[in-house]
């Protein structure tokens, strides 16, 4: 299995995963979307809200604001040693917002959220997001508690806004059938400009941009071109929301997948290794847990293959 970065541009990352399988590629994609933790505002204590916006909507808008995530310092509240419902400094960050429109209509932006003085590194990714507009004399005062969460709990914790993969295209050209520079219909029709005519001969210029649409195959009068794909290699396109860098999301997802596979291996060997009565008891226990774990085990199997 090999990974090669194709392009990295701002929030977008394209990389090639080769020598893999569909179950593995899909497990990785699903974990990146729904199981890599990120920070988002979860609980909001509203002290004063005289704006025209309802408290619930205000809290919802706050929750959707992406926050810079520090996975090395913070832990999920469920796994935190504090075991407190209110959270501690390891699993919670406080933001405060106090805004009042004095004279004219005032727009409150995400940058107005004051960060926790003890954790200044956790801040909003983008400060220009409008949260609410206040008319003269209206005021919003609140405390917002951010925590780590995953995309499967709520979409606001998804680290990515785009996470897709496609197969690596394989374009073969039948040289004797191809009319070369006298035809050029396939070059013309391709909307991604994958093909080019160089010195009279047809050439695959940008293979990775091919969307496998097959328009070139239909356009060729001689049937000289064939577009296929390699189902063991994948081109991923990721677009982070800014909380975590793209490469970190991939690494975290791989780590999670590995842990799942380890867990699965462990419980499987426990189950197979012990016979007799103890084994019977374990079987019942596993069945109870099994229902919840079913999906996860499936992903684990992908790795094993």
């Amino acid at each position: 299995m090999q990974v090669k970065i194709l392009s990295e541009d701002g929030n977008t990352l394209r990389f090639l995963l080769s020598g893999s399988s569909i179950p593995f590629a899909n497990a990785l994609r699903r974990i990146m979307l729904s199981e890599v933790p990120t920070m988002a505002i979860d609980d909001v204590v509203i002290i004063e809200n005289t704006s025209v916006m309802y408290d619930e909507i205000l809290a919802h808008r706050l929750g959707l604001i992406p926050l810079v995530t520090d996975l090395d310092t913070y832990v999920m509240p469920e796994e935190c040693s504090c075991k407190s419902e209110l959270g501690c400094s390891k699993c919670r960050v406080v933001f405060t917002l106090d805004a009042k429109a004095e004279e004219d209509v005032k727009t409150v932006y995400s940058r107005d959220l004051a960060t926790d003085p003890s954790n200044p590194s956790i801040k909003v990714v983008n400060g220009d997001i409008p949260i609410v507009k206040l008319a003269q004399g209206q005021r919003v005062k609140l405390e917002a508690y951010a925590r780590l969460g995953t995309g499967e709990m709520h979409a606001k914790w998804q680290p990515l806004s785009l996470c897709v993969y496609k197969f690596v295209p394989k374009i073969s050209i039948h040289r004797t059938k191809c009319a070369g520079k006298d035809c050029g219909k396939c070059v013309e029709i391709c909307h991604r400009k994958v093909l080019s005519l160089e010195g009279g001969a047809l050439k695959v210029e940008r293979l990775m941009d091919c969307t496998l649409c097959g328009d070139c195959m239909k356009a060729c009068p001689a049937g000289a071109i064939n577009v296929g794909y390699d189902s063991s290699s994948f081109i991923y396109t990721l677009e982070t929301l800014g909380g975590l860098p793209n490469h970190r999301i991939v690494l975290e997802a791989a780590k999670i997948l590995m842990n799942k596979a380890e867990d699965f291996k462990k419980s499987l060997s426990e189950f197979l290794g012990e016979g007799g009565k103890e084994g019977e008891e374990m079987k019942i226990e596993e069945k109870k847990e099994g229902k919840e774990e079913e999906g996860k085990e499936h992903e684990g199997k992908g790795k094993e293959e």
Binding site: P66, S110, V125, N126, D128, I129, P130, A155, Q158, S161, L162, E239, L241, G242
Partner: peptide, 8 residues
């Protein structure tokens, strides 16, 4: 639909 930031 996709969850990308558009508000700003």
């Amino acid at each position: 639909s996709c969850g990308a930031l558009v508000g700003h």
